[in-house]
Simulated scan of single mutants.
Amino acid sequence: MNIGVDLGGTKIKAGVEMNGAVIKQETILLQDKDSLSSTLQQLIDLIKPLMAYSVNSIGIGVPSVVDTEKGIVYDVTNIPSWKKVDLKDILQDEFNVPVFVNNDVNCFTLGESRFGLAQGFSSVVGVTTGTGLGSGIIINNQLYVGNNCGAGEIGLLPYLDQNLEYYTSNNFFEAIHGITALEANHAAMAGNKIAIDLWHQFGKHLGTAIKTIMYAYDPQAIVLGGSLSKAYPFFEMGMYNALVDFSFPESLKRLKIFVSQDENISLLGAAALIPNNYDNVLLKDR
């Protein structure tokens, strides 16, 4: 059994993984984010009761760039006190088990590849859309992180007057249209035509992101996750409309696009970082 941890800017989830399932889970809201010692203690206190199980290792996904070999995280999104944290060493000293650290979207993608909708596909890209736009990459059944764990950050590519992330995340609704994505979703569900059109426009922008992924990686499958993916029925048509001018239509016909269904998939992916249980899980540039 292994512990998987999903560290976010507002909450932390941790669970015990056994045979590809989460058998025990804990969740807390993250408090006092300006204090490194306080946030670390909250993380430790969340994991402690799970150590009562026969735990071999801990895997943790963090929304940041990660030195995956040393387990150091840098400039964690929405946690201002986490500028440079030796997370691997801190947790190994506390719990005396091996600890593995990676980017949170990489863990999401690995989870879908090993346990979720993308099982059976050797090349997969996971895309999460919410506060931002993130992606993780599986190549030849291995998680590809690049030299600095920065591979797949397509959201930062220039697009229109901003970047792709600006138009394919909460920013599209809040910064451009003055409404939250949640409000837009509720309005669309109630039949509001303006909200439905907003989601259609959002889908077109996300379709551009998918075309970028196809040109860069040509995966067999793309799995969509994150809070905005729950509105998929409202942006699906706009997304596919944006794909009609893709230069390689036969490749597009073979592409499978899934919407994540498992709320614990990132925990499972974090647990799958443990190389003793999942051989050749990580691929880096050398």
Rank of each mutant, 00 (worst) to 15 (best):
90 I>Y: 03
178 G>L: 05
57 S>W: 07
7 L>P: 08
1 M>C: 02
67 D>T: 15
175 A>Y: 11
198 L>V: 14
122 S>R: 09
36 L>R: 14
286 R>F: 09
83 K>Y: 06
176 I>F: 03
36 L>C: 07
194 I>L: 12
201 Q>P: 05
161 D>K: 15
275 P>M: 13
74 Y>T: 07
5 V>K: 11
208 T>N: 14
179 I>Y: 13
150 G>I: 03
263 E>K: 13
31 Q>Y: 09
232 Y>L: 00
217 Y>K: 02
85 V>P: 07
113 S>N: 01
88 K>A: 04
11 K>Y: 15
207 G>S: 12
230 K>C: 01
31 Q>M: 12
226 G>T: 01
61 G>S: 00
167 Y>H: 11
101 V>P: 03
95 F>C: 11
254 R>A: 09
178 G>C: 10
24 K>C: 08
263 E>T: 13
238 G>I: 08
93 D>V: 06
42 Q>C: 09
134 G>Q: 12
106 N>P: 10
254 R>K: 15
160 L>M: 12
186 H>V: 14
234 F>M: 03
260 S>G: 09
257 I>N: 01
154 I>M: 05
98 P>V: 08
92 Q>D: 03
41 Q>G: 04
77 T>Y: 13
83 K>V: 14
158 P>A: 09
259 V>T: 11
223 V>H: 05
281 V>E: 04
100 F>E: 03
237 M>F: 11
203 G>N: 14
98 P>R: 11
137 I>R: 10
263 E>G: 06
252 L>P: 13
226 G>V: 07
47 I>Q: 01
266 S>K: 05
80 P>D: 10
118 A>S: 15
245 D>V: 09
262 D>A: 08
194 I>W: 13
254 R>P: 06
106 N>G: 03
183 E>N: 15
72 I>H: 01
262 D>K: 15
121 F>V: 00
54 S>V: 04
269 G>N: 00
146 G>V: 05
171 N>P: 00
14 A>V: 02
134 G>E: 00
70 K>E: 11
20 G>Q: 03
10 T>W: 03
9 G>N: 14
173 F>S: 02
80 P>H: 08
235 F>T: 04
51 M>Q: 07
58 I>P: 06
76 V>Y: 05
212 T>C: 09
19 N>R: 13
7 L>H: 10
168 T>G: 13
213 I>V: 07
259 V>K: 12
216 A>W: 00
53 Y>E: 15
47 I>F: 09
217 Y>R: 01
6 D>Y: 01
221 A>R: 02
193 K>V: 14
247 S>A: 06
279 D>G: 13
61 G>R: 05
137 I>G: 05
172 F>S: 14
258 F>S: 00
164 L>N: 08
3 I>Y: 09
265 I>L: 06
67 D>G: 05
56 N>A: 11
252 L>Q: 07
256 K>P: 02
244 V>H: 08
219 P>G: 06
155 G>E: 07
258 F>I: 02
28 I>P: 04
188 A>E: 02
230 K>P: 04
253 K>W: 00
242 A>E: 02
75 D>A: 06
221 A>I: 05
254 R>N: 13
114 R>K: 15
274 I>R: 02
204 K>V: 05
17 E>A: 15
